[in-house]
Design a protein around this nucleic acid. Structure first.
Lengths: 339, 339
DNA sequence: GTGAAAGCGCTAACAT
DNA sequence: ATGTTAGCGCTTTCAC
């Protein structure tokens, strides 16, 4: 049974009960000016008896700050996608939430910036994860003067330096070098279709590397949004082609695992006939037979640094000269180890 | 370069620019009364030009609603713990976040209800996941008249029916029956120490089942907060004891995997000499050798139903007669399959 | 050490 | 179809 009549106690009720003015109550709670021991005591007792706690909206309206930081995850397949996408989403969201909780600041998932039917949300700043090129949500936030930090850079906004990003060039080059050392002659890239930094930078690195090593680059599109059957059909067409590559780098780890499965069905031995690597790591790559070499995107590190950068920004730090750079972790596994 | 002087546009600015009253602007945005086409047109143009968007705190203050739902995860090891705990945390947080995003309501992680230095947070209701017995955070929320939904029940608050819970009795009994059918004579339970429904109900079921089957119950405490070394020492003491059980049910899946490792070191064959099962599922149980039978807690289902129940509650639904019951999923694997 | 009062930006009741 | 206005609960300036 709930008390349906009870109105929530306000600062006014507390003041009345403690026989002081509301400003005294306010100051007692914020500690922003000296209060006599007797008065403070009366105030806190009254507050406890009434079950008072300050209304956060009133406070924010007055102070212009909410103490809350927003989070927007851009990849559109994060929500609708396969288990691999869910795992990535969970890990990213979980990392940011963990970090926020550690630092005791409120974190809010922003439901939909563009839908006018959705109430907007009181946030002091907003973290945008994996923006697209010239990302429209980012544009909107910037227009509204919301302090933004991005996790991964907007590939078409190099001048925006409030960002934490991954250095793909070094790690993807290392991966390709590794494949070459293991004897790969013909490396194909099955790249994703999302136009974010992850796809753009890894693809660019692959193309550069191929040029530098005088190899024919071969990229095919394998959309993150494909269902398993369509993805399998696409992979099949690559593995069945007359010029089958002897190594494939697949963007998402679950499709890399799918490639391993298709290879097994066809009697193509991994890694002897075909090496497989993924540009994201998940249970799928770890649990595949053989386990698949993968690039771990270090979501935990990105989350931690992004939150720290946001707090610094809100505390008035200067605009950085460059985004903060972290490194993905390359996990070499059986799928690319011939010797 | 940012404009540091620019004050955010308010409804007043828009009204002035569009040559209408502020109430007309308000109604134009909320659609709560008819506006002539010409006027609405002027208003939206002005709003766009000024980069106006309504201040959510002002709106909440006025309406008494924020459109935001809070989430509090109680298990204290969720944040500080091992990878298994992180995976569970991520999955739960991710599931709730996914569900909220689908329904386009804001989700806020409540940082710290008790710390007075932390600003409280504007929420219309709050989901509390895995409360302890007589949970103090739940008590506080109830005292404040915040509409609460719990994921899993507070074991000492059976009268609180705004809850979604798992039916452990049926599934744990099924697990024990399965172990018996596979030939287990002496089943030990390594239970967790968190006093939540998961530990309480599974332990009770184990004790009841043992009584019904005329078996000596044997439970040991294996705290979720232990680090790997301490957990390993504890597991060792069980496996090295003269009356070594021939089946162990371990609460957390990573410690179950640890048990498999310790058994392997000692030459104890799994499942022939020792069967192992876990009361939560994760990559650890799936990837162990052999893969470990585990109970999957169906976080996705819990999250979905909890969010739905919260929205119903906020929309004025009646107090349910009983909590909503879901079933965990039993995943039988090699660690308990002798034939 | 304490109080009075203005006002943050918005919604909605009551006007016309 | 549009305007006027009270007031949501708080912080903070100014006064004493």
């Amino acid at each position: 049974m709930e008390s349906r009549t009870a109105r929530r106690a306000t600062i006014r009720d507390v003041a009345e009960r403690a026989q002081v003015s509301i400003s005294t109550v306010s100051h007692a709670f914020s500690g922003s000016r000296p209060i006599s021991e007797a008065t403070r005591e009366r105030i806190f007792r009254a507050a406890t008896e009434l079950g008072y706690d300050p209304n956060p909206s009133a406070r924010s309206l007055r102070t212009g700050r909410s103490g809350i930081i927003g989070l927007i995850l851009r990849p559109r397949f994060a929500l609708t996608g396969t288990p691999d996408r869910a795992e990535t989403f969970n890990r990213l969201v979980g990392s940011v939430a963990t970090e926020m909780l550690r630092r005791k600041v409120g974190l809010i998932h922003v439901p939909d910036l563009h839908d006018p039917s959705v109430a907007s949300v009181p946030m002091d700043g907003c973290i945008v994860a994996h923006p697209y090129g010239a990302d429209e949500v980012l544009t909107e936030l910037l227009r509204r003067d919301v302090p933004v930090i991005t996790i991964e850079e907007d590939p078409e906004r190099p001048e925006f330096t409030w960002a934490v990003r991954l250095d793909y060039t070094a790690v993807v080059s290392r991966l390709l070098d590794h494949l070459r050392e293991q004897g790969a002659r013909d490396i194909a890239l099955l790249t994703g279709t999302e136009e974010n930094a992850w796809n753009r930078r890894t693809r660019e690195t692959y193309l550069d590397w191929s040029r530098q090593h005088d190899r024919t680059a071969r990229t095919d599109l394998l959309s993150e949004g494909l269902d398993v059957d369509d993805a399998e059909a696409m992979i099949r067409s690559v593995l069945d082609s007359p010029e089958r590559p002897d190594a494939v780098v697949v963007a998402t780890s679950d499709f890399a695992a799918l490639a391993a499965k298709v290879a097994a069905q066809r009697g193509i031995r991994v890694p002897e006939d075909l090496m497989i690597a993924a540009l994201t790591d998940s249970e799928h790559s770890r649990a595949a037979t053989p386990p698949i070499t993968a690039m771990d995107l270090n979501h935990e590190g990105l989350a931690e640094q992004a939150v720290e950068l946001m707090l610094a920004r809100l505390a008035g730090a200067e605009t950085p000269a460059e985004p903060l750079v972290l490194s993905p972790n390359l996990r070499l596994r059986g799928s690319t180890r011939r010797r």
